[in-house]
Design a protein around this nucleic acid. Structure first.
Lengths: 144, 144
DNA sequence: TTAAATCATATTGTAATTATAGGAATTGTG
DNA sequence: CACAATTCCTATAATTACAATATGATTTAA
């Protein structure tokens, strides 16, 4: 039950855009270098984020990407669900999925609901802004 | 980020053994019928549970399987981790996994730790005994 | 005009998932 | 003892997902 690289890279990509925001567009090449991720793979990932309106793209030289909204406006869950697909541990507790064929209310389903709630409790409360803050605190340590 | 059928089937298998426990061994064929799962697939799954000592097998006619311990002694996490592998959402927060190569303490890692704790908070507290109880309560509804 | 960037789509290699299949070994019962 | 019911073991296969890589088209600032 792993988060795939796609979701993790998307998160690091968005965090990179948030941290290095200066008004000017940020080139994917620079993100790829800083995050040590294949630029071509990042292109596919940011394409999804772009189509969803999470980032804005500027084409041509001096082009790049900028966050469409403030970092606090993006929850981790929004980013992961977009790139990763559903985060539900099993299909039957997924609102978008097809419900359990067999049982009206199978016993293990209660467990999956609890697990789903626990997962959502984290990813839907932590925002990109929080990640930026955490990173700033870590940076403080290195200053000394 | 889904729990695979292997882990889900293992849980239903263990629950079935717990619910139908009578002292006599329970045939896999009956579990397969009740749970509507391929018997051959269940064989592979229970083989893992058997080698781990979670169930005891009795061979030959009138053979089958019984739980080795009381249902309360098995957490959901024990069963899922055994059949499913690690439940960590990313490798770098997995005690058994290789730690992050790049960063000493990368920012997103804090998030993954929170997520990991949330998941463990559910699977390590709910036991097979709880599932049995839940099932009994559901059964009460149908009695009326 | 050129070069730097995004955009779009196809392809590939690997591994995991989800089983199915065939038969060997064990053992209670008639 | 023979038989049949069961567990046990291993191989194989079909499908899908994952994680990229590759190629080239399009846009646009300088």
């Amino acid at each position: 039950m792993r988060i795939s690289t796609k979701g993790r890279y998307a998160l690091r990509l968005m965090l990179d855009l948030a941290v290095h925001a200066s008004g000017d567009p940020i080139r994917l090449k620079d993100v790829a270098r800083r995050q040590n991720i294949s630029e071509k793979y990042l292109e596919q990932i940011i394409s999804v984020l772009n189509k969803a309106g999470y980032v804005r793209s500027i084409r041509g030289p001096q082009g790049g990407y900028v966050l469409q909204k403030a970092p606090e406006e993006y929850t981790v869950g929004m980013i992961l669900r977009l790139t990763e697909g559903s985060l539900c541990p099993v299909e039957c507790v997924d609102d978008a999925g097809t419900p359990c064929a067999s049982e009206k209310e199978c016993t293990t389903r209660l467990l999956w609901k609890k697990l789903n709630d626990a997962i959502n409790g984290v990813v839907d409360t932590v925002t990109l802004g929080d990640l930026v803050d955490w990173r700033a605190q870590q940076a403080d340590h290195y200053v000394i």
